[in-house]
Amino acid sequence: MTSTRLSLATVLWIVGIAVVFVGAWKVYVEVSDISRFVLPAPDDVGLALVDILGEARTWHHLRVTLTEIVLGFAAAVTVGVIVGTVLGELPAVERVVNPYLIVLQVLPKVAIIPLLLLWMGFGPSAKILIAAVFAFFPMTAGTRAGIRSVEPGNLDLAATLQMSRWKRLWLIELRAALPSILTGMEVAIVLATVGAVVSEYLAGGEGLGWLAVVNLNQLQVDNLFAVIVLLCALGIVLYVAVAALRRWLVPWHPSATQRPPGV
């Protein structure tokens, strides 16, 4: 079985690769005569990061973005689990709805962001909705696949025990679906982050995405990189938080004792 704790060797490798990457970046900036407006040195980015973290407005933007992501994600989880359950339970409904779901999935969502902004205004609700739209499909697909993955033997058990449909859903199907729902959530939290940040690029006067664009327009490339680092950190924290739910929610499943990818 895979160890659930990082060994020292693994930690050294992870840190080592990061050190080599940053070192190569620094060397490249020094030896090539690349403009600081294109690629700032890593130490300059570090200083800029310390700099912007010292400013209260950075924290305000971080809070705005975080709120959009979390609310959009929560909406996608709620709606996705409900829709996925209905689709998993009722194949007749699924056959009708499926083409629309596929259209929604293949539709370049970035392209409809301006439309949603137009309809919903430039305030936070449009961005929450966009984050939710991005995250909706993996939640639905994950839930549906999970509901379908119930062992036939468990359904026989439900039948001999004469479980009602709701009891079967609650005691068997949703629990069996949970590992797959969690996989959906791991994808969904990342997509919700993308949705929120991209919509901030395009509209409004708040959030880390907006801050990145402002820094770009002012050619504050050090700060732009610092904002990107901050966004990365935010994404990682959110992903790790969601991935950690697995241990807690499905301790009975093999996936809970294996390390989720990237953590």
């Binding site: 026989d156 058990l157 001999t160 025990l161 004469q162 009891k167 005691l171």
Partner: peptide, 30 residues
């Protein structure tokens, strides 16, 4: 008629998310 019957399957068919007692107590819970 079915309440008088109980079945033991070839695969034990326990629910992995419940503890052993909760599995055994499932018919009573229902």
């Amino acid at each position: 008629a079915l309440t008088q019957l109980a079945m033991v399957f070839q695969e034990a068919n326990l629910l992995p998310w419940f503890s052993v007692v909760d599995n055994i107590a499932l018919p009573l819970r229902l």
